[in-house]
Design a binder for these strands. Structure first.
Length: 425
DNA sequence: TCTGGGGTCCTAGGACCC
DNA sequence: TCTGGGGTCCTAGGACCC
């Protein structure tokens, strides 16, 4: 009798209920909606670069980020389609709206993936398996897209469950079966364990999450560092206290451009940096934000990369100011490199962000300059930026701008695709 | 696996302050 | 005229996420 009551009590209050919902091969699935005749065939979005691909293409070893020529080698029957990026954004938002019908506790991880905490919703919609099934049914019926869902007591378990559920499935991890579920799985499924960490663990004979759970905290700390060691040790031992947090704002904004290796010619570098600064500055200004730290990244032929940063007293978001700071950082860094070094990527990122409603005109944009100089320049730049921002607002982002004509279109990526990855500022 | 693009977090050393 | 310990900020590099 007492045991029954204990059991009954447990199932009435199993703790938090977290779902992880993850659209299957999202971009490719949207393209299949638009091109039903391609269903069942290996397809890839993109051309010069694979931006996304279907499960059929993945089976050949095709993956996103791969060059188009490499993908064609692996899969000669691969069909390339143009991306409909605005559709991805719209449908991704629609899916999030479906999730929002079950709870406001939605944490969106990317265009096509989110955690939701339905602890407070089970009395309305039933147990986790019922909620997961309803979500999948609605996304299928209303949007025509396959989505996998994992449900469990923690984020870690829910996320792994949705991966195990793929493609187009639902996996619920019952609280009393968590260890049986978790321990046989490979460590690479865990959040935070990528190729490097996986190799380090494999060198110690650790391949499953169960083996990881048996390892001593001290050995994991010394192998992986304190933070990561503690984190993976806790997760493997099924100790995950992270909450679902509705999305906050981004802590940094950046843009990058990769290109075929080339000599760092002055005109080229200026054009690329101007283009990147324009993208970053435009996004900052659109959200009335600015940042004190400007970081550049230079990747060389052979993939070695360096970063250089500058933190000023005043936050910046003017395109020309960002360009100048970035140029100075890049040339100072390149001066320390062998003169024959070729570059294959440039990036600009702005961090230490602050809100900057209407203080723009009063603030010197670069505190390192003499004040009499900065006042006028700041005002002029403010005016130029806002004129351009306004033209773009009315006629579109590409109506006017610092186009980097030196960038070949072959390896560059459509702006609409970039926008999919942008975080809320 | 010969590598796109936008992000986050951690580490380690140095400067500087009290 | 030798030197503790803690806190904060900055810089650079690296792993990882989607």
């Amino acid at each position: 009798m007492i045991e029954q009551m204990f059991d009954h009590g447990k199932s009435m209050d199993p703790g938090p209920t977290i779902l992880h919902a993850d659209l299957d091969a999202f971009s490719a699935s949207v393209e299949l909606l638009l091109h039903p005749e391609l269903r069942g065939k290996p397809i890839a979005v993109g051309g010069g670069v694979v931006l996304a691909c279907s499960y059929e293409a993945k089976r050949f070893g095709v993956s996103s980020g791969m060059s188009g020529s490499r993908a064609r080698q692996l899969c000669p029957s691969l069909q390339f389609v143009d991306g409909h990026f605005r559709e991805y954004q719209r449908l991704g938002d629609e899916v999030m709206a479906v999730l929002g019908d079950f709870t406001p506790m939605v944490q969106r991880i990317s265009i096509d993936e989110a955690f939701i905490d339905v602890t407070g919703s089970v009395h309305l919609f039933g147990p986790p398996e019922a909620i997961g099934a309803r979500i999948r049914q609605r996304v299928r019926d209303e949007l025509g897209l396959p989505i996998s869902v994992g449900a469990a007591r923690t984020k870690h378990l829910a996320k792994i469950a949705s991966q195990v559920a793929k493609p187009d499935g639902l996996v619920v991890v019952q609280p009393h079966l968590e260890r049986e579920f978790l321990h046989p799985l490979p460590v690479g499924l865990m959040w935070g364990i990528g190729p490097v960490t996986q190799q380090k663990l494999a060198d110690r004979g650790i391949r499953t999450i169960g083996q990881l759970a048996e390892s001593s905290p001290q050995s994991l700390r010394s192998l992986l560092g304190n933070a990561l060691g503690d984190k993976v040790g806790a997760l493997a031992s099924n100790d995950d206290r992270r909450r679902v947090r509705p999305n906050g704002r981004a802590g940094s904004v950046g843009a990058q451009s990769a290109f075929a290796r080339r000599d760092p010619e002055e005109r080229f570098v200026r054009e690329v940096l101007g283009h990147l600064a324009d993208r970053v500055g435009g996004r900052l200004r659109a959200k009335q934000r600015a940042g004190r730290t400007v970081t550049v990244r230079i990747r060389f032929a052979g993939m070695r990369a360096i970063t250089r940063s500058h933190t000023g007293r005043a936050p910046v978001n003017a395109t020309l100011t960002l360009t100048e700071i970035a140029e100075r950082l890049v040339w100072t860094a390149l001066a320390q490199q062998p003169p024959e070094a070729q570059i294959s990527l440039l990036a600009i990122s702005v961090s230490n962000l602050v809100d900057q409603a209407s203080l723009q005109l009063e603030l010197p944009l670069d505190a390192d300059r003499p004040v009499h100089h900065t006042g006028e320049i700041a005002a002029a730049r403010f005016a130029v930026d806002h004129a351009l921002d306004e033209v773009r607002r009315r006629f579109g982002r590409n109506a006017v701008g610092y186009a980097a004509v030196a960038l070949s279109t072959e390896h560059s990526v459509p702006d609409e695709f970039r926008e999919l990855a942008e975080h809320e500022l």
